[in-house]
Amino acid sequence: MSFLEVRDLSVRLKGGGPLLRNVSLTVAAGEVRGLVGESGAGKSMIGKAILGILPRSVEISSGAIVLDGTDLLTLPPAMRRQRVGATCALIPQDPLTALNPSRRIGPQITDRLVDILGWKRAEAEARARALLHEVQIADPDRVLRQYPHELSGGMRQRILIASAFAAEPRLIVADEPTTALDVTVQKQILKLIAGLQARHGTALLFVTHDLGVVSKVCQSLSVLYSGKVVEDTDVARFFAGPAHPYSAALLAATPKYTDPTAGLNPVPEAVIAAVRAEVENG
């Protein structure tokens, strides 16, 4: 059975149009699923719905989010928060804004282990040190005492990754974790996430618009267009030949750096019109 099962999830603007339309997807224990789509397709929205951090302006209109056998949407808010906090984690998009500027790094990693999960302070600190070591931070003791503004973006993203893995969650939502980083740093961070995922056996929902990233870290993927899943497949099959015309066009639009003379292939207008019609009528 899948650890996470999102079933027919629909999200809409309060008093407005739909943002997600009957989205279904599963993530098995230890699986890495990519969630791809253009900006505005709603891929981050799915992660937010799972973690219970949807903006106040949107609401879930129907569907179920089943985490480890329990539908989160039927739980009272406090219980839902606790369950998500204990089993899931988020690797945010922008490491520059995701750490609290007025607090030292140490407590930002350890506090939730102590407050929410009931660890002893010393255990939590040892854990934080070990994980910082694992994300290849050379001097964990020093970093734990520092403030976010004293660290680079790449360092901060390493810290956030360490923090996400700290409580041994069963599922991590990575919301475009490399988009805000330098290209040179992107690669290292990606490798780091993949390595940690493999060692800890954590299921990963990897939100990205970069098919290159998907081919490197994911086993399965869902392609989203305008709030609807248009293709749900495994990575090998997808790169061999996507079933849906929109996926095919998306794949063709990915720039290939091996051939400098090749131009860009934007998704053709006809494909967009077709997929739009399909999503809006289906």
Partner: peptide
Amino acid sequence: HLDYVTLARTQGYS
């Protein structure tokens, strides 16, 4: 609205 506040919410804080 800031990210670190959202992150704290995902960690189970009320």
